[in-house]
């Protein structure tokens, strides 16, 4: 969806055409679901989070500043929903225990890699988790990430560098030193 189409959909929603929100959902549901999935590391929770984020976005659409990218705004809402969800989950007690340690020569199947990475990501701060998700799972360029996160490209690169470094250390602690 182009920027113009996006703005047209926003305007139609604000005029009361709720059907126009379909195009926004269709454009972003996959990306946001994957963001939420990697943020909360649970498929059902990710669905709840994204549903809630979309509904909030619809309800608050009139507060959206159109000088910003719509995705930036909805992404921010989704991340906040993830944070609220994780805080609630933390109060209810831990869901998953850490993965058991592995020998360096263990061959990791894709599913196992996903599990290990998912658990390690949860140990990163939300800013570092966010850049990893946007770069590696949503496949945004540095420039696109800069627009979404509303920080300079230099900051994006720096955060990515630190996030990968921390992630590497977390994986090493879990006994994963090479794939």
């Amino acid at each position: 969806m182009s920027d113009d189409e996006e703005q047209a959909a926003v305007e139609r929603c604000l005029r009361g055409e709720s059907r126009a929100f379909e195009t926004i959902v269709d454009s972003y549901q996959r990306v946001l679901y994957n963001v939420a999935l990697r943020m909360v590391n649970d498929r059902e929770d990710a669905q709840d989070v994204v549903q809630s984020a979309f509904v909030k976005a619809y309800e608050k659409l009139h507060t959206y500043d159109r000088r910003r990218k719509l995705f930036s705004w909805i992404y921010r809402i989704t991340v906040n929903e993830c944070l609220d969800h994780l805080a609630r989950r933390k109060r209810q007690g831990p869901m998953d225990e850490d993965e058991p340690g592995r020998g360096p020569d263990d061959a990791l199947e894709a599913r196992e890699v996903e599990t290990v990475i998912g658990a390690a990501l949860l140990d990163l701060s939300i800013d570092y988790r966010g850049v990893i998700i946007l770069r590696h799972f949503v496949h945004l360029s540095h420039r696109e990430m800069s627009r979404v996160l509303e920080v300079p490209e230099k900051t994006v690169k720096s955060r990515l560098h630190t996030a990968r470094k921390l992630l590497g250390e977390l994986l090493a602690k879990r006994g994963v030193s090479r794939a």
Binding site: Q29, L37, R43, Q47, I117, I132, H136, F137, L171
Partner: peptide, 23 residues
Amino acid sequence: TVFGMLDRIESVDPPPSLRGNVL
């Protein structure tokens, strides 16, 4: 290796019910 592991994780389709629930 970190890059390789991250890039091995594939994008996941959202559940079909998500869109309907939102709308």
